[in-house]
Amino acid sequence: MTAPLPESALVDTTIEPAATGATRASRATWRAFRRMPLGMVSLGILLALLLVSVLAPLLAPYPAGYGSDVLRPPSAGNVFGTDSLGRDVYGEVVWGTQQSVLVALAASAIAIAFGTVVAVIGAYVPRLDTIISVVVDLTLSLPVLPLMILIAALVGPSTSTIILVVAAFSWPEVTRLVRSQALAVVKLPYVDAARLMTRNHGWILGRHVVPAVTPVIVVSVVVTASRAVLSAAGLAFLGLGDPTTWSWGRILYEAQQSGAMVSAWWLTLFPSLAILALVLSATLLSIAYNDARNPRNHAR
């Protein structure tokens, strides 16, 4: 007859898998992600754009004032050419990266925070879930672009306006994605056990529900940020962006206003490539991350 195990051994055996399960899953996901060249390239592009936005003052002087070389094509002196007022397009794109990244991060952060809170509370409280579902479906059915144009025009063009407008029309999609995962999590046995242990519902949501839906939140951050860039660029192209700050949409807007959009191809090419790089890399990164989360890829 074997001797009973000491109490410390029993504690280690029962608690360690639960404490290390999430860490092991994250490490397995990262190992699988590193084996995906497309995902790593996309991550590198996003990090490069983030680095450009931070180092903008060191990479190019702020494009202010006017120059003598008007509509000059790309050359050694002006690698991206100049615009209709003689300003360096390279500097406009670099400083536009700072503005676009700021809008993407701020708008997605607001949309993710609000959308996640609404989704988790709705999944946890069934009486509120019906109301939240109706509000989300109604908001998603609205014509987003005309409403964004209307609100931006009424409030006035500014960076804060663009961030709030984009966030206001992005949170319903986040809520729908997170809610579908949260509905399954709140029915799991360990959540029911937590409800029996404490009446602190905020602790239950923060300790058990939110960590379980974190992978969906990560994907939502990337997708929402790319949509925020497209929305902000669209509003700026329509003349509803911040006129005091450079953005990729403002470069396109001024090229269209000057009538040089067709003749001076470089005015539209480089900001468009920047928008494409950010949106495409964000989309491919989310796809690669979803594939890396698949347990089948962990065993390869």
Rank of each mutant, 00 (worst) to 15 (best):
T2K: 12
P4W: 15
T13D: 14
I15G: 06
I15E: 13
A18W: 11
T20W: 08
T23M: 14
A32H: 03
G44N: 14
S53K: 03
V54P: 00
L55S: 11
P61N: 13
Y66R: 12
G67R: 01
P74H: 12
G81E: 00
D88T: 14
Q98Y: 04
S100E: 09
A104F: 05
A109H: 07
A119H: 02
V120G: 00
R127V: 12
L138F: 13
L140D: 15
S141G: 15
V155H: 03
G156L: 10
L164F: 14
V165Q: 02
F169K: 01
R176P: 07
V185C: 06
P189G: 10
D192F: 09
R195V: 04
L196R: 14
L196D: 13
L205T: 01
A212F: 03
V213W: 01
V219A: 15
V221D: 01
R227V: 07
V229S: 03
A232G: 12
L235K: 02
G239K: 04
T245V: 13
W248T: 05
W248S: 03
Y253I: 07
M261R: 12
M261Q: 13
S263V: 11
L269F: 15
F270A: 02
P271I: 06
S272R: 10
S281D: 05
L285M: 14
L285D: 02
Y289C: 11
Y289P: 05
N294W: 10
P295W: 03
H298P: 06
A299W: 11
